[in-house]
Computed example of a mutant assay.
Amino acid sequence: MANVIIILILAAAVGYGIYSFVHHLRHGGGCCGEHDAPAKKVKAADTNKNHYAHRLVMGVDGMTCQNCQRHVENALNALPDTLAEVNLSAQNVTVWTKADADEDALRKAIRNAGYLPLRTTEKE
């Protein structure tokens, strides 16, 4: 009788594992937006970095995947006269601005996207 119970428990565990695997394949497995289509990329109006006089690099905590990267870039690229590129492996974002960067506005945009802005590491 104990053997039957063990076999039923193992069968249930294997069944759940197969269900989880199929669910992951169908719906994705990202940390954010797991069941949603990826957000459309927001492009800055001007993508030529030579047109931007100021650059700063700021750390961002909480990014773990390309969806996270796109959320942060979209939040910053939606700001006027701003171009942003996230380096996911370095956990930072480089932001180019035409006027002197309003760091408070940049930090607020990152927070509103759901991430934690860290200190600025470079500023030109």
Rank of each mutant, 00 (worst) to 15 (best):
Y52A: 03
S20R: 05
V93R: 02
A84G: 06
S89K: 08
S20M: 04
H24Y: 03
I5W: 09
N87G: 02
R70Y: 05
R111W: 04
I5P: 06
I6R: 14
I7E: 06
L118C: 04
V42W: 00
N3H: 15
N87W: 00
A75T: 07
R111V: 07
A101G: 12
E124C: 05
V42D: 01
A78I: 06
H54N: 13
A44F: 07
L25I: 13
D102I: 08
G17Y: 01
H71L: 11
V4D: 09
H51G: 06
K41Y: 10
C65M: 00
K98I: 07
A90F: 03
A45L: 11
N48H: 08
H51I: 00
L10P: 07
I5C: 10
N77R: 06
L118V: 10
H23G: 01
G59H: 15
D102M: 11
T120L: 12
G15P: 06
N74W: 04
K108A: 13
C32G: 08
A44T: 10
D36W: 03
A90I: 02
V22W: 09
S20A: 07
D61G: 10
M58V: 15
T121D: 14
V95L: 09
I18A: 12
L106W: 05
H71Y: 14
N87E: 04
